[in-house]
């Protein structure tokens, strides 16, 4: 996967050669705790950057997450239905949430590369 880009809310997006995958960062998931359920978005949905698109429930907190870019959802990670804990064990690899096509380049601007995100994360 090409280098991921990050948001301050904890989402990441990265191009895997054919689609843009979206997931949650390690610190974001660690802060939530043990994940018990992931509400994934509908296939085929066209979403805008900043739009609430899925929710994650951990033991005591349910949190909304937002699509970091404009695009159309073409796949969801159905493994998370039966294995929500995959978000805890592999949030930036096997625990990806959904994949997009037709992602607008403009919506990628303003996201942080990994170095910038780590610098921001360590300072917050």
């Amino acid at each position: 996967m090409a280098e991921k880009l990050y948001t301050k809310n904890g989402e990441w997006v990265g191009f895997d050669g054919s689609r843009w995958k979206v997931g949650l960062s390690v610190p974001a998931v660690a802060d939530l705790g043990d994940v018990t359920f992931v509400a994934l978005p509908q296939l085929g949905r066209t979403v805008s950057s900043g739009e609430a698109v899925c929710a994650v429930e951990a033991v005591k907190a349910a949190a909304d997450y937002y699509c970091p870019v404009d695009g159309r959802i073409v796949e969801v990670n159905s493994r998370l239905v039966a294995e929500p804990q995959l978000l805890n064990t592999s949030p930036e690899d096997e625990g990806w949430l959904f994949a997009l096509e037709s992602v607008s380049g403009e919506s990628l601007e303003g996201l942080m590369d990994e170095a910038a995100w780590k610098a921001w994360e360590s300072g917050s």
């Binding site: 809310n9 609430a52 005591k60 907190a61 349910a62 949190a63 909304d64 937002y66």
Partner: peptide, 8 residues
């Protein structure tokens, strides 16, 4: 018991 819901 206590529980939260969070958004951005």
């Amino acid at each position: 018991g206590n529980a939260q819901r969070r958004d951005r």
